[in-house]
Simulated assay, not measured.
Amino acid sequence: MDLDTVRTFLAVADTGRFREAADELAVTQQAVSKRIAALERVLGVRLFTRTPRGAELTIDGQAFLPHARELSRVAERAVASVHRGSRPLRVDVLASRSAQSGLMRGFHRAHPEIDLDVMTLFDIETAVTAIRSGAIDASFRAVAAPGRPLPEDIASVRVLDEPLQLLTGPAHALAGARSVTLAQLAGHRIWMPGIAPGTEWAAYYDALVAEFGLTIEVTGPNFGSDALLDTIADTPALATFMGEPTRLVWPAGHGLRRIPVIDPVPVYPHSLLWHRDNPHPALNTLRAYLVGATPGHDAPGTWVPDWVRPR
Results as ranks from 00 to 15, higher is better:
D2F: 01
V6N: 00
T8F: 00
G16C: 07
G16L: 04
R17W: 10
A26Y: 14
V27K: 07
T28P: 11
T28Y: 14
Q29K: 13
Q29G: 13
V32L: 06
K34W: 13
L39V: 02
E40Y: 10
V42A: 10
L43W: 11
P52Y: 09
G54F: 08
G54V: 05
I59V: 13
G61C: 01
F64K: 02
R73N: 01
S81M: 15
G85H: 03
R87H: 14
P88Q: 07
D92N: 09
R97N: 14
A99Q: 02
Q100L: 09
H108V: 13
E113P: 07
L116M: 05
L121Q: 06
I124Y: 07
V128C: 02
V128D: 06
A130W: 12
R132Y: 12
G134P: 08
G134T: 06
A138V: 05
F140N: 05
A142R: 00
A144F: 14
A145P: 15
P146Q: 04
R148G: 04
L150H: 01
P151G: 02
P151A: 00
E152S: 13
L160V: 06
D161E: 12
Q165L: 14
Q165C: 15
A173K: 15
A177E: 15
R178T: 11
V180E: 12
V180N: 09
L182H: 02
Q184G: 08
Q184K: 10
G187Y: 09
G194K: 09
Y204S: 10
Y205K: 10
L208D: 14
A210T: 03
T215C: 13
E217P: 09
G220C: 06
N222C: 11
N222G: 06
F223K: 14
A227C: 08
D230I: 08
D234G: 08
L238T: 04
L238D: 05
A239R: 00
M242A: 13
M242V: 11
G243H: 12
G243C: 02
E244I: 01
T246N: 11
T246V: 08
T246R: 09
T246L: 05
L248I: 10
G255K: 13
G255A: 11
R257L: 05
V261F: 05
P266R: 00
V267T: 03
P269Q: 06
P269L: 01
L273C: 01
H275N: 07
R276Q: 14
N278V: 04
H280T: 03
Y289K: 03
G292F: 03
G292K: 10
P295I: 02
H297K: 08
H297T: 11
P300M: 05
G301E: 13
G301V: 13
V304Q: 07
R309Y: 03
R311L: 14
R311A: 14
